[in-house]
């Protein structure tokens, strides 16, 4: 299922306000936790792997730097 990229929220201001309200009073660690929970709940709701891959790619756009070339190379 392709990711919807056209506007779909009936009450965009209302959604945005609810999101801000949820973050109100949280320190940055708790806020990060809230966002993480939200992503997991919504990802499960969407379910479709292709849609999620597309969303991750779209969200990642323009966020330099590219993933650093990891501390993963293990040379003999």
């Amino acid at each position: 299922m392709p990711l919807h990229t056209e506007p779909r929220l009936a009450d965009p201001d209302g959604f945005y306000a609810a999101l801000m309200e949820a973050h109100r009073g949280l320190d940055s660690e708790a806020s990060r936790r809230l966002d993480a929970r939200l992503v997991i709940l919504l990802a499960n709701h969407i379910g479709d792997a292709e849609t999620l891959r597309e969303a991750i790619a779209l969200a990642r756009e323009g966020l330099a730097p590219e993933r650093p070339a990891a501390d993963t190379g293990d040379r003999p």
């Binding site: 660690e29 990060r32 993480a36 997991i40 499960n44």
Partner: peptide, 21 residues
């Protein structure tokens, strides 16, 4: 990193209450 820890803890917290996680 911090993001990975936040996601992991979020998964573990949700898992206690919700099968989805």
């Amino acid at each position: 990193n911090e993001a990975a820890r936040a996601y992991r803890d979020a998964v573990l917290e949700l898992a206690g209450r919700h099968a989805l996680a």
